[in-house]
Design a protein around this nucleic acid. Sequence first.
DNA 1: TTGAAAGCGCTAACAC
DNA 2: GTGTTAGCGCTTTCAA
Lengths: 340, 340
Amino acid sequence: MKVTIKEVAKKVGVSTATVSLVLHGNSRISPETRKRVLKAVEELDYQPSQLARGLVLQRTGNIGFVLTENHFLRTEPFYTRIFLGTEFEARDSSFFILLATIPADFKENDVLPRFIAQKSVDGLIIAGKVPEQFLKRLIPYNLPVVFVDFYPQEGEHSAVLMDNLRGASLATEHLIRLGHRDIAFLAGDIKHPSIRERHLGYRSTLQQYNIPLNPQLEIIDEKTTGKESGFNAVCTLLSRGVKFSALFACNDAMAIGAMECLKKNGYKIPEQVSVVGFDDIESDVFQDPPLTTISVPKYDMGIEAMQLIRSTLENKMRTNKKIIVPVELVVRQSTAPFAR
Amino acid sequence: MKVTIKEVAKKVGVSTATVSLVLHGNSRISPETRKRVLKAVEELDYQPSQLARGLVLQRTGNIGFVLTENHFLRTEPFYTRIFLGTEFEARDSSFFILLATIPADFKENDVLPRFIAQKSVDGLIIAGKVPEQFLKRLIPYNLPVVFVDFYPQEGEHSAVLMDNLRGASLATEHLIRLGHRDIAFLAGDIKHPSIRERHLGYRSTLQQYNIPLNPQLEIIDEKTTGKESGFNAVCTLLSRGVKFSALFACNDAMAIGAMECLKKNGYKIPEQVSVVGFDDIESDVFQDPPLTTISVPKYDMGIEAMQLIRSTLENKMRTNKKIIVPVELVVRQSTAPFAR
DNA sequence: TTGAAAGCGCTAACAC
DNA sequence: GTGTTAGCGCTTTCAA
């Protein structure tokens, strides 16, 4: 809050208008003046006040980043990486990111993040699944919104998503090519669009290879998608007494939990059971064995989201563009050829 | 950016000044007018523009929250919880939090977070250890700063810290009271003030109980304080062939890694070796067994930090207040009485 | 090619 | 008690 445009103008001996014009590359300013202005700006280390700028431009220069509290606190840095990507990209555009969490069970009359209520953001990036109730409350604000790793049930939106279907296919195909036929699928929170897609990818790939679906091999009704759910899912699977030589978990956390349970029950991984996860959470240094998984470019998703909202803001149009980022199979040591 | 103070004023039939005064509780307004103004504000859902307000008040209403990228991405939600506390507290005060990460090896000419360079924050909360180089670069900005879970080598500062010394004492004492005498200490990054204090607490408590220190039992030169360091530390310890029945790791991550290594080598926990951690990261559902540890009120630390910076800002004085938050021993299943 | 001036929405003297 | 008014720092017609 120190050196203002006025002082720059005075130093150069021009009007503030001229300085402003120069700074916005805008128009017909003689190269001579431009140079002198730029020099003064440099020398004085002039930093335009975002406040004043925003006031006249009628924009805050802020983007709200919203996710549920449990997502933010997830042990593996999934959404934090997305956030970092967004933050990084925001540096180039001249936006600031305001982060706020909402309750996972956001209720009709819960209070909205203050930056929304106060209209202190120009747009919103919403990461991960959020309650319908929350989205409903957003409507009157008429803010541009970009979703990341989530797409609401209703309506058309802008979103950055990952290729869940293809990821699940890659994972399943990997196992099939290793010779596995009895491949279990582990999931929870099956209503979540991403999980559902992964489930779908699993099923369609099996069919594509003419492997009959076996409902006994699918555990999809776990409450959560955390480690303990993976653990429990395998317990259930074992209790069913159904034969399986491989296992595709809908995410890494469940895969890790699943491995724990398998190991506890004396199964060798990957010798007796191959395990594939999804997300590549790269958290547990002590994954034992290191998990074969589908890696997701989290950081890039954050970047894409920021670019998307920025272009929405600049063009002042609602494009409802969907960006699907690619995923890839990362083969580590938790999978091996089928050995009977 | 819709309904302004003007419209409120017009609706009530008073001047904008009156509305402004009412809104700031400020004194001599007749209860009658006050009521009418408040009613209009309500009806129109008037939200004061932070931009305009900031412009005249010469404050941005933003607080920068800075930490190193690796801290932000830590698998256990330590700093994220602190951040959440800060965020929560910021709702009451009318501040927004801008989060930025810096490289852990911030170098002299690295670019500062944009909100600092651009003077878009009124103050800074710095969480965790940050490079000296970064702090040096901050000086010219003359911003009020509150440190959380870190205290710079030089100078006097405001900070919110946890009682590391007492925590380490509690942990060590717990083991001693269980009958253990040969208690190992595991640490990395020993130059970090917090780690050093924990080391100190360990040592002084042993001495207090007249247990001679045994350097062979101290592994303090691990590079990091992550799981793999815990794992490695135990490897080293075992290779030394020194006798030990309990182990105090400088944090939970190392404790977990240590347990992995112990289990791999056939040790039963807690029957043969008791393990205590520090931080209570409550991340791994599958801590096996659940870890006895020192719990730290992370969320509260965030709240305290926000309150501290706020009061600094309000009083416009540099108090250099240090707040030490209490820690407590949480006994779970990784510790048991000494059995020879 | 440049400058004057109005005004973005709000606060805070200072009048009345 | 309440209104008038002068900015806060910036952008942007409009004139020159």
